[in-house]
Design a protein around this nucleic acid. Structure first.
Length: 130
RNA sequence: ACUACAAACCGGGCUAUCGCCUUUUCGUAAGAAGGGGAGGAAAGUCUGGACAGCAUAGGGCAAUGUACCGGUGAAGAGCCGGGUCUUUUCUGCAAAGAAGGGAACAGACAGUGCCACAGAAAAUUACAGCCUUCGUCCCCACCUUUGGUUGGGACUUGUCCAAUUAAGUUUGGAGGGUGAUGGUGAAAACGUGGGGUAAGGGCCCACGGCUUUGCCGGGCAACCGGCAGGGCGGGUAAACCUUGCAUGCUGAAAUGCCAUGUAUACCAGCGUUGAAGAGCGGCUCGUUCGAAUUCUCCCGGUACUAUCGGGAGGUACGUUGGGUGGGUAGGCAGAACGAUUUGGUCAGUAAUGGCCAAACAAGAUAAAUGAUAGCCUCCCGAUUCCGAUCGGGAUACAGAAUCCGGCUUACAGGUUUGUAGUUAUU
């Protein structure tokens, strides 16, 4: 239980094929301004949990702003993903996530953290029920 | 000291906790420790290259770019210096001088087009107005003798028509001449004055302006000055165009390698008697390439898979593509030592270059370089016993994606230097 708050390469979603599947077949939960596209993919993944992050270039024209949002979301996710990980471990499932920022203004870290908590709790409920 | 302008530079720092990418060492591994981790524009993708692949006998056309001179550099639509034209400000009565700014700065007698409004007219033409003339031949004399002048004579009255008169005398019309008149415009046919003319006109002359040719002087050259000659029928080429010069196309999602690549299977056509076709790339002439593989066995491999690769034996193969049949994921190089950076020195007006010394400075790929807290420092406001205290803020433009040189655009705040002005002091 030493590496509780990590988020390295293996924990990030990188494979194009899975991402395409995620958007065509996956389901979504959202708590404004964060929306999560998710899918249980038991046979494709080796890691229990992989996540990707994005912000629309329509809402944020400059690359600096998009980078900032992705960094904030990544930080919030890193600090609060532990319960989700644990649930998956006990159920022996594998999950792919894609987090999208749907707001139109640059947020503060406190807000992102608060909303991330809400949306992750919702996601956890959906998964345990299914 | 303040303000304005210009140029150059900087673009917060440290610590703690939790994280990310990369690399080195240790470790069987899990992991641990150490090193490195965005910009002056990383941006726009506007340019010039490096590099790579394909193409390339040569010529012509087309297309694109480019356009004062010299230097610089790998190169350029870059930079530096100079020339020409133009423009602003200041000084000055003026002549002129000083300090800047701008120029796609080859050609408008090769051709075509266009020129708002106003104006008769925006280009060789029209309209209004003005004008409507003498000339040719012969003889004599003289002179500066391929000619000119004076005198005399002949024909004719610039042309045509009509009328008229003593009379080509007058009038009218046709025709002709006319950029002097038309006041408008950004621009009106080089300007002013004179001569000349039927009336006029650079038609001629003087002065001035522009342009061009030759010679002389200066300069590497663009060009400048002087003398002599020719010309002056607007502007526009960031309108088409013409001339000179340059250019093969595609860009890192290029490209090479490991691996893989839809059969070496079945059916059909054609060919080996240069077939099918490919190279071709914008087009044409022209030119080049083009048919010995399959089966069996053995060995090999980034992973699974395999019909792959190599060798031996052995042998009917090539090609077209309609149908049947039939693989996915990924890695390495390119890609971080170079037209490199920093310091010194020398050459040069400068851009820049030579030499010497030192340094190695992000390398991601659904894409790292972050979050939180505190302190320092700085800025703003309030209080003030001028020590300070309290409150607020640190923010601009903006995020590498093969790499360099430039250009352009964005930018809170600060520093330095220069110029100008104002105030104060000496």
């Amino acid at each position: 239980m030493v590496k509780k708050f990590t988020l390295n390469k293996n924990e990030r979603l990188k494979r194009r094929k899975i991402i395409e599947q995620l958007f065509s077949e996956g389901r979504a939960v959202s708590a404004f301004p964060i929306r999560i596209q998710y899918k249980l993919v038991d046979e494709l993944l080796t890691e229990p949990l992989q996540a990707g992050f994005s912000a629309s270039s329509r809402n944020f024209k400059r690359a600096v702003d998009r980078n900032r949002i992705k960094r904030l979301m990544r930080e919030a996710y890193r600090l609060q993903k532990a319960p989700l990980e644990q649930a998956l471990q006990t159920k022996q499932r594998r999950l792919a996530l894609f987090l999208i920022y749907t707001g139109k203004e640059l947020p503060e870290f406190a807000l992102v953290k608060e909303k991330m908590d809400v949306v992750l709790t919702k996601l956890l409920q959906n998964i345990t029920n299914s």
